[in-house]
Design a protein around this nucleic acid. Structure first.
Length: 135
DNA sequence: GCCAACGTTGGC
DNA sequence: GCCAACGTTGGC
């Protein structure tokens, strides 16, 4: 099983909404590197859900409910999407500042290349975020 | 195939 | 609102 982090502006699609809806299609990603990673996501992979802009924090945990398939919102059929389902909220959001301060997390793509909307994490990094989040 | 110009994203 | 980082586009 692999571990991932996805990013969303909470005003566009929040973790609370993912929980309300019970799942969603994670589409609209138009970045070549992110596309490669989307293609590697498997059903059951764990996913950290990060709120950009206002929160700048990981607020919850989700999982891949359906692995990569062609993104129906793309005209040319070249892009991919997955389905995500909510797992649980973090009692304490883990901020971008905490990522920077934590040696294990300072090397993540979230810190190093902030514009990517889907990035992989190591199992150790993932576990550390869950721990910092109070689970 | 190179590179300047431009657009987008996200942190501050 | 500004700026840095990065991707994309288009002229040559």
């Amino acid at each position: 099983m692999r571990h991932w982090l996805v990013k969303s502006e909470p005003t566009v699609y929040s973790f609370a909404r993912l929980r309300e809806e019970g799942g969603t299609r994670w589409d609209g990603i138009r970045n070549a590197q992110a596309r490669i990673w989307l293609g590697e996501m498997k059903r059951g992979d764990r996913v950290l859900f990060y709120h950009s802009q206002t929160d700048k924090a990981v607020v919850g945990e989700a999982e891949v409910a359906k692995e990569a398939y062609p993104d129906p919102t793309a005209d040319d059929g070249k892009w991919l999407c997955v389905d995500l389902a909510p797992v649980r909220a973090l009692p304490t959001p883990v901020t971008l500042g905490q990522f920077r301060d934590e040696p294990l997390l300072a090397g993540t793509y979230l810190v190093k290349q902030g514009r990517l909307s889907v990035v992989p994490l190591s199992p150790e990094q993932y576990a550390r975020v869950i721990q910092l989040g109070g689970l």
